[in-house]
Write a protein that binds this DNA or RNA. Structure first.
Lengths: 154, 154
DNA sequence: GATAGGGCTTCCCATCGTGGTAAGGTCAAG
DNA sequence: CTTGACCTTACCACGATGGGAAGCCCTATC
């Protein structure tokens, strides 16, 4: 099975399969005499595992960890559960941030008449809000990098 | 006022002030004889505007647009309101994605006994879930890049 | 058998916003 | 005059992904 077929069958692009190999997330694929990568059904399973993990918002490093647990038959399910629940907390923290931003904006928009006049509380807020105490959780955690990564875009 | 003071006073790092200048988001600062950038109270206001916009999750390009509207005294408040509400929709779309992920994971975790036994529905799901129909909204929109950017991490 | 086209290879660059760091110039206080 | 804190530019890094170029390989059709 070529990399293209593996990509189609797993939902992971050929580009990303090569990338995952280069960072050691998956083992180096066997090659044909002419250097083409060859994939087995087993490799496909791994790729689907990764794909599913990404869909659930896990980072590559988290997936690396989960893959190791997957292959470790003596793993404790509590390890997996802990990772999953920690990830749920990260997701929820991000949701709270987004919620806070959306609430603020919706509130401001409510008070903006939205016609042809220039007065606009949204712009006024951007221009003159007290930066020191706005959305401290958002600003602080963004700056500390606590929520780096997940859902960062395609 | 030096760049360091401007950074402290605005909450935007010196690094980012230089970056914003380099991408044309703010005008090139005046320089002292020895090449130091000099900032005025007016510049500070702009920096705080940007900072606040970032805190609200606007992208640099959105802020560029909002800055133009801010400086345009003949602007219509409807323009600003439209941008804000579009952004609220983006934020809500991301929240829905995160919610979907969190729900799935919480559900799986509920059925994981989380002890020393290796059986774990979370791992099983990652390994064998039907990739084709899981979280279609998330996967599809992530792949299409519809939600690129905001809250991508510091 | 030759040629076309599609798939594969590697390598580099771009995104987005931010931080780090190195090498060097400048300024103010001691 | 030295020291240390500040400034300058320039480059590299992250995380995950896509884009593209240059070149090799394989297969189908003429």
């Amino acid at each position: 099975m070529n990399i293209g077929e593996a990509a189609t069958a797993s939902g992971v692009s050929a580009k990303m399969i090569r990338h995952y190999e280069s960072i050691g997330l998956i083992k180096s694929a066997d090659r044909t005499g002419s250097g083409y990568r060859v994939y087995s059904g087993n490799d496909l399973e791994t790729l689907r595992f990764i794909r599913r993990g990404r869909d659930l918002g896990f980072s590559i490093e988290q997936i690396r960890h989960l893959l190791a647990l997957w292959r470790d038959r003596s793993r404790a399910s509590s390890d997996v559960k802990r990772i999953a629940l920690e990830h749920v907390e990260e997701l929820e923290a991000k949701m709270r941030q987004l919620q806070e931003m959306a609430n603020t904006l919706r509130h401001l928009a409510t008070h903006c008449h939205g016609d042809s006049r220039p007065d606009c509380p949204i712009i006024q807020d951007l221009a003159h809000a007290d930066t020191s105490d706005f959305a401290p959780a958002v600003a602080a955690s963004k700056r500390s990098g606590a929520l780096k990564g997940t859902l960062a875009g395609q």
